[in-house]
Amino acid sequence: MTSILATPRVALVIGGSGGIGKSIVHKLAAEGFAVAVHYSENQASAQKLADEIVVAGGSAIAVRGDVADETAMTTLFDDVEQFFGGIDVVVNTAGIMILGPVADYDLEAFDLLMRTNVRGTFLVSQQAARRVRSGGAIINFSTTVTRTQFPNYGPYVASKAAVEGLTLVLARELRGRDVTVNAVAPGPTATALFLEGKDEQSIATLEKATPLERIGAPEDIAETVAFLAGPARWINGQTIFTNGGLA
Rank of each mutant, 00 (worst) to 15 (best):
A50K: 14
T7H: 13
G135K: 01
N236E: 05
T143R: 01
I61V: 14
D78M: 07
I53N: 10
S40R: 15
S202Y: 13
P188T: 03
A183W: 01
G165D: 10
D88E: 09
Q82N: 15
L206K: 12
Q238W: 01
N117Q: 11
G86C: 06
R64L: 01
A192K: 15
T144K: 12
I61C: 01
D104G: 04
E52F: 09
Y39S: 11
G16A: 00
G18K: 15
E41W: 14
A68Y: 11
K27N: 04
E31K: 12
I240M: 09
R133F: 04
V118F: 12
R172W: 09
P231Y: 03
R64G: 10
E200S: 12
F227A: 10
L195I: 08
V67T: 12
A94G: 02
N92M: 02
N42Y: 03
P186C: 03
S40E: 14
V124E: 06
L166Y: 14
I139T: 07
A247G: 14
E41Y: 15
H26Q: 13
D106G: 12
E70M: 07
R133P: 05
E31F: 03
F227C: 07
V25C: 08
R9Q: 07
H26D: 14
G176S: 01
T2K: 15
Q126N: 08
I139V: 13
K208N: 13
V163E: 02
I138V: 03
V91Y: 09
F77P: 05
S142C: 10
A34Y: 06
P101V: 12
A232Y: 00
F83D: 00
G245Q: 04
Y39Q: 05
T205L: 15
L123T: 11
V13N: 02
G57S: 06
A11V: 07
A204Y: 05
G86L: 09
F83P: 05
G58F: 09
L76P: 08
N182T: 08
D88I: 02
S3N: 03
I4V: 15
I139D: 06
D199G: 10
V67H: 00
A29L: 05
V124R: 04
G216C: 00
G95K: 08
I203W: 14
L12W: 13
A11F: 02
M1A: 13
P186Y: 06
A190T: 09
A62V: 10
T7F: 04
L168D: 02
G136V: 08
P151Q: 12
A94M: 02
L112E: 14
S159H: 04
T146I: 15
E31M: 05
